[in-house]
């Protein structure tokens, strides 16, 4: 028996990385600030700086790889798309390039740059938060703030459900292929394979949800009393409090300054 592990739940489970160990609400506070700055500033240079800052935070938090993989996939996709759409279709006076009926203008490029970096920066805040915050810590906090256990269960389990559904769709795909349904090949064949895959997936998801609801009821989920927690978070360290206060004051000052300017 690994008693060391069992008794480790008596203490808050720290990773010894100060970003990861930060209270989820503190992190939320800081990221909301980073979320609002690009909206108030309206400058693509600031946006890019903030985006670079996210990478630095991820690096310090030791989740650089995970963050980068997720963020690049998203950033490249959405950022590029938004940029191209704006650059191609926003009218303006300074023509840069003409291609048939499409006029690429300086204004379009500027607007595309501004808008796409803004969206990428804002979404970066959300992605970064999801990477540096353990879901269970977040749920612990919202339960402490008064959210019901059922809500936190539904949110937390939906992460696992997505993985489970992915697994299930693979099995369904296999079973329909084994039956002779072509899932490779041209578009028509693929569309034909759609119903045989979505049908069982949808019904399976519903019946799984029902089974799980009953199984969780057997684990006393419907108790009308306040539940306890095996894992808990540490109380806010003084240093963290200080950082939060400083950051919020600086942020308010910054916003006021921008509004005055």
């Amino acid at each position: 028996m690994d008693y060391e592990f069992a008794y480790s739940f008596k203490k808050p489970q720290l990773t010894n990385n100060w970003i990861l160990d930060m209270n989820p609400l503190s992190k939320l506070n800081l990221l909301i600030i980073l979320f609002i700055i690009p909206i108030t500033v309206q400058s693509w240079k600031w946006n890019v700086m903030i985006i670079i800052f996210y990478f630095l935070v991820a690096l310090v938090a030791g989740c650089f790889k995970r963050f980068t993989r997720l963020y690049l996939r998203f950033g490249l996709m959405v950022g590029l798309l938004l940029f191209v759409l704006r650059a191609l279709f926003i009218p303006g006076e300074n023509l840069l390039y003409k291609l048939w009926f499409i006029n690429i203008t300086q204004e379009g490029v500027d607007s595309g740059l501004q808008f796409s970096t803004l969206v990428v920066a804002i979404c970066g805040a959300i992605i970064l938060y999801s990477i540096v915050t353990r879901a269970k810590d977040f749920m612990y906090m919202i339960e402490k703030l008064g959210a019901s256990r059922v809500i936190s269960y539904v949110i937390l389990s939906s992460f696992q459900s997505i993985i489970d559904l992915g697994e299930m769709s693979k099995v369904i795909l296999d079973s329909q292929r084994a039956r002779g349904i072509e899932t490779e090949g041209n578009i028509r064949q693929r569309i034909k394979a759609f119903i045989p895959i979505l049908g069982p997936l949808f019904l399976g998801a519903i019946s799984n949800a029902e089974e799980k609801a009953i199984a969780m009821d057997a684990r006393a989920f419907s108790m009308p009393i306040k539940n306890t927690h095996l894992c808990h978070l540490r109380s806010l360290p003084v240093g963290e409090k200080a950082i939060l206060i400083a950051a919020n004051i600086a942020f308010i000052g910054f916003v006021v300054w921008r509004l005055m300017a």
């Binding site: 296999d174 072509e182 069982p200």
Partner: peptide, 22 residues
Amino acid sequence: RTTAQISAYVGYVFQNPDEQIF
């Protein structure tokens, strides 16, 4: 060959019927 082609020779019944019926 593709799986669909081989399915003309080999039939396969999966463990869980609910992952197939639609």
